[in-house]
Write a protein that binds this DNA or RNA. Structure first.
Lengths: 108, 108
DNA sequence: CATATATATTGACAACTATCAATATATTAT
DNA sequence: ATAATATATTGATAGTTGTCAATATATATG
């Protein structure tokens, strides 16, 4: 696995490291919700929610569609599954770990 | 799911959000390694590695055993699996999502 | 005891970010 | 047109953290 891939996966985990964003994901994984509906469940300001939704969208975890004044958000399941698979890869003994491809000189 | 649970899971994802720590996990998921061996694979200082190993240990993802001057690190698989399960819970429509337990007043 | 190696800790600094109030934009209803 | 509602953007701020050099501690070896 390349350096850049660890960075990319790290960025996604960074997005998932915020408890509010985890709550949002939990909510919209049950059903599609508009921002004002999500906001009712949380105790944050509207601008903060808007910020979180932007972060979730920009990284690919969430998608949205606009209907009149409302913006409906939902989870991109394939994207999440892809991340899960990559994490499985990292946490198990797989041949594409860079410990098999990089030669090191260890004095041990 | 309680507020504190989202916080706890968020903290674990925070730990996983660093690309260097992801590399370390990838390495030691292949086989147990001592710090100096891990260091050979990475381009960071020894003190930085020590810091990362402390973070990984303190959150429960990694465990260690000391043998002479060497400290050997390995993954706590059950812990990782537990996190994966919790993430599956968050990213799917499950009855313990707080959208089912909290009553909201939405004008929609 | 002295030297070398392995690991941990401390302190400092730069970079990042979650949050809010205020404001802006867009759409609907009256 | 005006008011109300939904969402986004713009600073500003406070808190967090990854990194390194320097230092400390621990163990083995000669």
């Amino acid at each position: 696995m390349k350096d850049s891939e660890y960075k990319d996966i790290g960025k996604l985990f960074k997005v998932l490291s915020d408890p509010v964003r985890l709550q949002i994901i939990d909510l919209i994984s049950c059903k599609e919700m508009c921002a004002c509906e999500i906001l009712e469940f949380l105790s944050i300001s509207q601008s903060t929610l808007s910020h979180h939704m932007k972060v979730l969208k920009e990284c690919g975890i969430v998608t949205s569609r606009k209907d009149a004044t409302w913006v409906y958000y939902s989870i991109v399941t394939e994207f999440i599954n892809d991340l899960k698979e990559k994490f499985n890869n990292i946490t198990s003994d797989t041949s594409d770990c860079f410990c098999y491809t990089i030669k090191i000189e260890c004095k041990k």
